[in-house]
Write a protein that binds this DNA or RNA. Structure first.
Lengths: 176, 176
DNA sequence: GTTTGCATGTAAACGGTTACATGATTGG
DNA sequence: CCAATCATGTAACCGTTTACATGCAAAC
């Protein structure tokens, strides 16, 4: 999902500025499977405006840049739906942690333990954020998508917790 | 994990040509959390050679380009371990499917069903591949990393299967 | 008094993908 | 007969990240 499509999606829910779009991507139900930085969002919004997929109205502010509030147009809605309808690209799950684990035999035992702790903590956080987002009233579909992510995170956590000590024990045995 | 690091990792296991590195990334335990294309691998190997992290020996072949067999050097091993030791970047899970599901209310019911079926089939395949890779003798660590991915996939599948019909029923009710 | 939040934008650099070029061999 | 496998490599292009520029106000 490129940033243009992400922007269109967010704008189907409500009008927003570039700044607000970033916030919405970070919070709630969009994370963890989409991302967008300012450097990508602002140019994307300009291109969408040129293409007439969104319209802008500026709101003057004192001592601050004007708020540029974007709304999706009918053409934008059609383009967005069209992009969801055409065959989706595959999920891409890049995990430096999992990759590192494959080579854990090259790493000090202590460091592996730290990495595991950090990863578990991080996954717990992500899960908590998803649960929080889920608490707010949502459409059934959003609930569904959120639940899918929660299921994956919860299973990962359970696996890590139950295999952590085992792994250490086995390594200790192997060291004898 | 950039392609250079991925190449180094593969080469810690065994010498390989660029072509073989690609194959090993696609098969077995590396998928689904790493990827690398030829257009990335060959330049990466050239850079690694320049940096003395790998060495090459060419094997002449008739009617085919020479096989260039790469070996990791001591310096390469150290660089690889160092890159695993420094703070890892976060996992990035980009899921066009999950994103599309968030906006499923904009899509025809039939199309959603198709997307779900395709995604379930795809996830089943990925899980099967992981289980297959796991059947071959592996180090404990590789088994651990593989198991983590399997747990996540299995949980996702279970979730999708158990919520699929519910989703359809609810939608049918909502349509009345 | 420093950090965070608000608010927009540009430009250079980066890493990677896609398509192309070349071409014999084997298997369906 | 066509597709896939083996085998390397280049070049154009793409989207994105990162760093920079600007600057007030409120909260801690």
């Amino acid at each position: 999902m490129d940033v243009r499509t992400i922007c269109l999606g967010i704008l189907t829910r409500a009008d927003a500025t570039g700044y607000e779009i970033k916030k919405r991507v970070e919070e709630g139900g969009y994370r963890p499977f989409v991302e967008a930085s300012f450097g990508a969002i602002y140019p994307a919004l300009n291109k969408l405006t040129k293409d007439r997929f969104v319209s802008v109205r500026a709101e003057a502010q004192e001592k601050r840049p004007d708020r540029k509030i974007y709304s999706i147009t009918e053409a934008g809605r059609r383009a967005f739906v069209a992009s969801l309808m055409k065959p989706l690209t595959e999920d891409r799950h890049r995990s430096p942690f999992a990759f590192a684990m494959l080579f854990a035999d090259l790493l000090p035992e202590q460091h592996i333990a730290q990495m595991l702790d950090a990863y578990i903590a991080h996954t717990e956080q992500a899960l908590a954020q998803l649960q929080q987002a889920d608490a707010k009233p949502k459409s059934q579909r959003e609930h569904f998508a959120n639940g899918m992510s929660q299921a994956a995170y919860a299973a990962t956590l359970e696996y890590l917790r139950s295999h952590r000590l085992n792994g250490e024990t086995r390594t200790a045995e192997a060291a004898e």
